[in-house]
Amino acid sequence: MVSVVYEAPASVQDAVALLSGAEITATVLAGGTDLIIQMQGLVNESRLLVDLKKIPAMMEATLDAEGLQLGPCMSCAELTSREDIKSVYPGLIEAAYLIGSTQIQGRASVGGNLCNSSPAADTVPALIVNNAQCVIVGPSGERSIQVEDFATGVGQNCLEKGELLSLIRIPLPAANTSDAYLRFIPRTEMDIAVAGAAVSITLDDDGICTAARVSIGAVAPTVLVVAKAAEVLLGTKVDVQALQAVAEAASKASSPITDRRGTDEYRRHVVGVLAKRAAAIAAERVRGIQS
């Protein structure tokens, strides 16, 4: 067990001050669904836990003409109950809905999912295809970075000592655009993704794809953006051939490992299947908006 010092500051400034001034290892606590389990494995250590959930801005989400300003600690349960957000970013909401069980979603946050920096994090591919941005606050002020550049390795990210993720900013999707996220797990729930794929697609009035983004998870040390898989959609009607090309591009871009959740071979195959199916769903959603 770890010996814990617990603080729940009321402002981001106080949180940053606590984090940067700490003499023992300081860690941000959001929903705790990753962190509390990780701490169980530690023996004879001390930790300062800085709980951000008492900071109102961390727990709110605003959807306006700019897009979505998502407080990184808002629970997935609260986020997925927001119909307004779901209608704009259905893929992101379905990713948040996939995290753990109802109980886990009662605590787990998108910010925690991102900052835990697992390549299998379900919301990350969906954030990436929506061009989401991280706003980071630290002792030397505020900076922003695209979500795809945030994680640097398995469990590693670009946060420096004293820094925290203060906001996730997601621009409004362009007109006639929608997204989808799919993951593969052996059961129907309660598993960590063996592979995941998010796709965002824009179609013109003739149903031709004019823009696309494809991102895949759990098949490399970090979540990947697959430009090639997006390219092959451009100019197509997202038909069977285009979808097959998406699958191939996604599989090709992956560099998975073999572990208890799947073999490299299997992951490489399945990520293609997911990318293709997600693309088809996203396209179908756009057609739904158009009709």
Binding site: V4, Y6, L29, G31, G32, T33, I36, I37, L49, D51, K53, S75, A77, S101, T102, Q103, I104, G106, R107
Partner: peptide, 12 residues
Amino acid sequence: RLVCSCLVLGVE
């Protein structure tokens, strides 16, 4: 909200 009490700290 429904949660797992094994993943919540007493102080929370």
